[in-house]
Amino acid sequence: MNPPSIGLLVEITARTLAVCLPALAISLAIGLPIGIAIGGRRFAGRVPLVSLINTGMGAPPVVVGLVVFFALERNGPFGSWSLLYSPVAMVLAQVVIALPLVVGITLAAVGSLDEDWELQVRTLGVPKRWRLWLLVREIRLGLLAAVITALGGILSEVGAVMAVGGNLEGETRVLTTAILMYTQMGELEIALGLAVILVGLMLVLAGLLTAVQQSGRA
């Protein structure tokens, strides 16, 4: 067993980002509007819907992986797309994991607004198209919390991406699955090196987002 070269570490790190960042972008693109829509409205069936979302926030990733596995396997409903053990399958599983986190935290942020915030805005005669912008500005701290939580959730996740990605070298091997593999192989030094990269990555990304969050506060 040859120790992995620096090039390989860079490659695994790059692939990790290439999977996680699109998954994050998709989760935000879908989740933020849904969260704002549900958060700002009262309608029949809202309570069961919100509790469903809250359940999703705690969904065990390994179960998500299993469900996506069954959907994508050759004899499954979407088997003809041949997506299992590909990066696309990993993105899909991560979106399923991150989406409830984004929706849940967003709607909590909207819900935490002052009861008559909307009334105030309306009284001030703000046009409807600007109201959404004002709302987003108002809850931006909560939205950044949603981004950080979702990113942390998918970057550190291993069960689901192992199940649907398969840890294929050069195709679906990301930091978490590589750490698991080297640990099981007894190559603990390499596993530790990759772990340092993973934690460092999270530190940098969370640091950047927090800087944005805190600068918005001033």
């Binding site: 396997e73 041949s82 299992l84 053990y85 840890n167 294929l168 699955t177 593999m181």
Partner: peptide
């Protein structure tokens, strides 16, 4: 040539899928 870095069971699943 694909290297799975996984156990026998999962490697067989990957071989079956692909």
């Amino acid at each position: 040539f694909l290297s799975s870095g996984a156990g026998m069971g999962q490697s067989l699943q990957i071989a079956g899928e692909k």
